[in-house]
Computed example of a mutant assay.
Amino acid sequence: MTWIAPVTLSDDRVELIPLSADHAPELRLAVRDGDLWTLWYTSVPDEAGMDAEIARRLRLQEEGTMLPFAVRDKKTGTLVGMTTFMNIEADKQRVEIGSTWYARSVQRTGLNTHCKLLLLEHAFEALDCIAVEFRTNFFNRQSRTAIERLGAKLDGILRAHQKMADGALRDTCVYSIVASEWPAVRTHLRYQISRYPA
C-alpha cells in the first residue's frame, strides 16, 4: 500500500490510531455502551465478534482496500469506536469513509465532527483525493443526517444493493464530497467545532 498507509490523526478532542488486535478488549467495552449490534439497519460487531471484525479489517488493510482506525476519546483516554478509509481506489484517487461506529455515550457530542474533519483533511490535503464517498442504509436516518451535516451531497440511492445479515435487501444511500467543495466543507466543519465544542 503505497498511496495510503497507516497514520495517526489527532486534534485536541480525538485521536485516530491504526487499528490493532490489541484494541479488542477496549472496543468490546465500547460496543457494549448502547448495545450497538442490536441496530438492525447497520453492521456493528457484538462483543463476541470483535476479534473477528478486527481481523477482517486488518486483512482488508493487507489487501490494500481498507485503512482501519480505532477512535480514542481524549477526554477520557478510552477507545470509543472504529472508523476506516475503505474501498480505496489509488488509481482514481478516491476513498470512502465508512464502517464507523461509536459508543452511545459519545454520539451527538461533536466527536464525530472532529473525526470526519481529520479524515477529510488527510484525504484531500495529504492524499490529494478527487472525491471522498460515504454510504449508509436508507433506513439509518441518524447516519444520513450526520453525513449531510458534514456537507456531503447525495449522489443517489442504490436500490436492493446488498443483503443484510437477516436476508433483507438494503437500499444504500451514496454521498460524496469532491475536491472543489473541500475548502467550503473545511470552513463549515471548523465553524461547527468552534461553535459547538465537543
Rank of each mutant, 00 (worst) to 15 (best):
F139A: 02
T83G: 06
V31K: 04
L150T: 03
S99I: 04
L120T: 05
R72N: 06
Q61I: 00
R170K: 14
G167I: 06
T136E: 00
L169N: 06
H188S: 15
T136G: 05
V7W: 04
D166I: 09
E125F: 09
V14H: 07
L36I: 13
D35A: 15
N87H: 13
L39M: 14
I177T: 08
Q107D: 08
D155H: 04
H161K: 01
L67W: 07
F139P: 00
M66G: 00
N137G: 04
N112Y: 10
H188Q: 14
E148Y: 02
Q192A: 13
V14G: 05
R190N: 15
P68V: 12
V31F: 04
R159W: 11
D51N: 13
S99T: 12
P183C: 14
L9V: 05
A179I: 05
T187R: 13
S99Q: 08
W101S: 10
A131Q: 10
R28I: 14
A55H: 03
D171T: 07
H23N: 13
G64P: 08
R56M: 09
D22W: 03
A90G: 05
H114S: 15
P6T: 01
R32V: 07
T42K: 03
I17W: 07
T65D: 09
G49Y: 06
R190K: 15
F139S: 00
E148Q: 12
R190M: 15
D155S: 08
W40Q: 11
R108S: 15
T187W: 03
E181H: 10
D12F: 01
R28T: 06
A179Y: 02
L127V: 03
A198N: 09
I17T: 14
R149E: 09
D51C: 04
A70E: 07
E181V: 05
R190A: 13
C129W: 02
F138I: 02
F134P: 02
W37A: 15
E96M: 07
D51R: 03
D11Y: 03
L58Y: 05
G34I: 12
H122G: 06
A30Q: 08
D128G: 05
D155T: 02
L127D: 01
D46L: 12
E181L: 13
